[in-house]
C-alpha cells in the first residue's frame, strides 16, 4: 500500500493562525486534499513537513447568491455542492461535474480546484519511476524533460474550474500576512509550471466572487479519454454576450490544460466582438485560437492532436452559445 511520508498536522481555527502556520518551512495547505494527498504519496513534495488543514476554520463553506446576481462561493465548498446548486449558472455546475469522479467531487473543494497543482507526465509519476529518470525542474532537478532546451517548467494547469472562472470574470479573495485582498482570477495565474500562482504560499484563497452576469452565455468543453476520472487535456471555456441584433458585445474565450495557466485567447475574442454572431465569425474565431497555444507532449495523447483539437473545441463551444 502506498503511504504518506511522516507529517505534522495542524488544524487551526482561524485564518490568521493558518496564515502564520503557512509561513513555516515545509507547510502545505490542505483543503479537500484530493490533489495534495496523491502528490505527497508520490513523494512529489520532498520538503513537505506540515499539513495545515482548514477544516476547523469557520465560514469557509457555502454559496451565497446576492440580489444583484453576484455569486460568492466560499473556498472550502465542495465541487459536489456546486454541481447540485440549481441557483448557479449551468456552465459552473457542468464544469464542476466534469472534475475527476463523483467521490473526488464530494471531497475536492472549489478553492483546491482553483489552486490545483500543475501536472506533467514526467512529474506525476510513482517513486521507482522518478528515481529511474533524472528529476525534472519541478522535482528539483536541472532541466525540463519535455522541453529540454528551455529553462522553464511546462507542467500543465489542469483545473476544470479555472478557465470557467476566468471566462466568467470572477474575482478571488485572498488573505495573507498583510491582510485581505481581492484580485481578478485571471491575475491569480502565472504561465510557469513551478510558480503557477501569483499569490504567496502563505496566502489563502477564501472566496470566489462572480459578479452580476445576467445575459452572459457561457459553456465549457473538456477533452479527455474517458467520461470520468480523467483530468482535462484541453478545456475550453467560452462566454459571450449578444445584443438583440445578434451582435457580439463581449467575448471571453479561455483555454485550460494547454499551458501552465488558463489562457485567454484575445485573438479569437477580437474576431467576435462587434460582429454578428454566426457560423462564419465563429469559424473565424475558432481558427484564430489555433495559433495561440502550443501544448507540449506532457499529458495524455499527443501535443499535435491537442493542438488540432483547440479550434474544434472552440468552435463547438461557440456554436453552443449561438
Amino acid at each position: 500500500m502506498l503511504r504518506l511520508p511522516p507529517l505534522r498536522y495542524e488544524a487551526p481555527s482561524t485564518l490568521e493562525e493558518a496564515v502564520a502556520l503557512l509561513a513555516e518551512d515545509g507547510a502545505l495547505l490542505a483543503a479537500g486534499g484530493s490533489d495534495l494527498v496523491p502528490n505527497l504519496k508520490r513523494r512529489q513534495y520532498p520538503t513537505a513537513r506540515t499539513i495545515v488543514s482548514l477544516r476547523r476554520v469557520a465560514d469557509l463553506v457555502g454559496i451565497r447568491v446576492e440580489s444583484d446576481g453576484t455569486i460568492r462561493i466560499a473556498a472550502l465548498t465542495t465541487l459536489a455542492t456546486v454541481v447540485e446548486d440549481s441557483r448557479l449558472p449551468k456552465v459552473l455546475r457542468e464544469a464542476a461535474g466534469a472534475v475527476a469522479s463523483p467521490q473526488i467531487r464530494n471531497q475536492g473543494t472549489v478553492g483546491g480546484n482553483l489552486c490545483v497543482d500543475t501536472r506533467c507526465d514526467w512529474l506525476n509519476v510513482p517513486d521507482t519511476w522518478r528515481q529511474a529518470a533524472e528529476p525534472c525542474l519541478k522535482a528539483g532537478g536541472e532541466m525540463c524533460w519535455v522541453a529540454p532546451a528551455k529553462k522553464d517548467c511546462w507542467a500543465v494547469s489542469s483545473s476544470d474550474l479555472a478557465p470557467v472562472m476566468v471566462a466568467l470574470g470572477a474575482e478571488v479573495q485572498l488573505i495573507g500576512p498583510d491582510g485581505r485582498r481581492s484580485i481578478p482570477i485571471e491575475q491569480l495565474y502565472r504561465n510557469d509550471g513551478m510558480a503557477y500562482l501569483t499569490k504567496t504560499t502563505e496566502e489563502i484563497l477564501t472566496e470566489v466572487v462572480i459578479g452580476p452576469h445576467a445575459g452572459l452565455r457561457a459553456t465549457y468543453r473538456k477533452l479527455r479519454r474517458r467520461g470520468s476520472i480523467d483530468f482535462p487535456i484541453l478545456g475550453v471555456a467560452a462566454a459571450v454576450r449578444l445584443d438583440d441584433a445578434d451582435i457580439c458585445t463581449e467575448a471571453r474565450i479561455v483555454l485550460g490544460a494547454v499551458a501552465s495557466a488558463p489562457l485567454r485567447v484575445p485573438t479569437s475574442e477580437e474576431v467576435l466582438v462587434g460582429r454578428t454572431y454566426n457560423a462564419e465569425t465563429i469559424a473565424e474565431a475558432a481558427e484564430a485560437a489555433r495559433k495561440l497555444a502550443r501544448p507540449l507532449n506532457n499529458t495524455d495523447l499527443t501535443s499535435r492532436y491537442r493542438t488540432r483539437m483547440i479550434p474544434v473545441f472552440v468552435r463547438r463551444a461557440l456554436e453552443e452559445l449561438g
Partner: peptide, 24 residues
C-alpha cells in the same frame, strides 16, 4: 491504487461516498 484513481477504497463519510485513500 491508493491514489484516488480506482474507487475501491470508497467508504461513506456522513452518508457521502469518499475515497478513504485520499482522506487523512
Amino acid at each position: 491504487c491508493e491514489l484516488g484513481e480506482c474507487g475501491a477504497c470508497t467508504v461513506l463519510i456522513d452518508g457521502v461516498p469518499i475515497l478513504s485513500c485520499l482522506t487523512l
